[in-house]
């Protein structure tokens, strides 16, 4: 009886391991499909390697895959409701399958993020750095770096912000503030931010490598 139990446990372990392993195996067909999509479709706005030139569209190169996948799923389920999400991404993500989303996220994660760009307003950048690193205590704004990392490369599910277009970051902060992009944590953070403070943080982030 004991042997049977051991055997069963062993089998179960193998099956579980198999299931985990199967989950990790990436179908090359899906990867190839995702690459074609990334270059030919997503690339129209986000750049062929995720480095968009238009500040309206976010740079995706080097972005955390977990964050990217979560966003694509939020577009697909129409839960992310900022105007550009509705206008552009609800449609583009509508027929994406989970496996394609994961492969797209992986594609962008390994692309080389852009280097620092030169900001014109040094005072704004300095103020932005201060807010990013220390927050605004008086207004109850926590340090951005606590979640997004000291280098703004993101941590776990929190997105990379380094090198992102300032215009895009500004727009997202405004969307969090008025809850069009419904994320409780960021709504709390952005609520107390004034427009010039948002701008400072955004231009600072754009300068980061």
């Amino acid at each position: 009886m004991r042997n049977v139990m051991l055997l069963s446990a062993g089998l179960l372990l193998i099956l579980c391991a198999g299931a985990v392993f199967a989950d990790e195996v990436v179908d090359p067909e899906v990867v190839a499909h995702a690459e074609r999509l990334a270059v030919g479709t997503c690339g129209t706005c986000h750049g062929v390697k995720g480095v968009s030139k238009q500040p309206k569209f976010p740079r995706l190169a080097g972005q955390n895959p977990a964050y990217l996948a979560a966003q694509m799923k939020a577009f697909r389920s129409q839960q992310r409701g900022d105007p550009d999400a509705i206008g552009y991404m609800w449609g583009m993500s509508a027929s994406l399958e989970d496996s394609t989303i994961e492969a797209l996220a992986a594609y962008y994660a390994v692309q080389t993020a852009v280097g620092a760009s030169v900001a014109s307003d040094g005072a704004s950048v300095a103020r932005g750095r201060e807010i990013y690193e220390k927050g605004i205590e008086a207004a109850g704004v926590p340090a951005c770096s606590a979640c997004h990392g000291p280098d703004a490369h993101g941590i776990a599910d929190f997105p990379r912000l380094a090198g992102q277009h300032a215009q895009y970051v500004m727009k997202q902060l405004a969307s969090f503030q008025n809850n069009m992009r419904n994320v409780a944590v960021m709504h709390g953070v952005a609520q107390a931010l004034k427009v010039d403070e948002m701008r400072s943080v955004a231009v600072f982030l754009e300068t980061l490598p």
């Binding site: 030919g40 129209t44 238009q54 509705i86 206008g87 552009y88 609800w90 449609g91 583009m92």
Partner: peptide, 26 residues
């Protein structure tokens, strides 16, 4: 076809945005 609103390709139609131009070129 794209699932995108008109504003993706047009400022106000028929004037094209940069994205609209790239869409046409593609």
């Amino acid at each position: 076809q794209t699932g995108m609103a008109c504003e993706a390709c047009h400022t106000v139609w028929p004037e094209l945005t940069h994205f609209g131009r790239v869409f046409k070129a593609n």
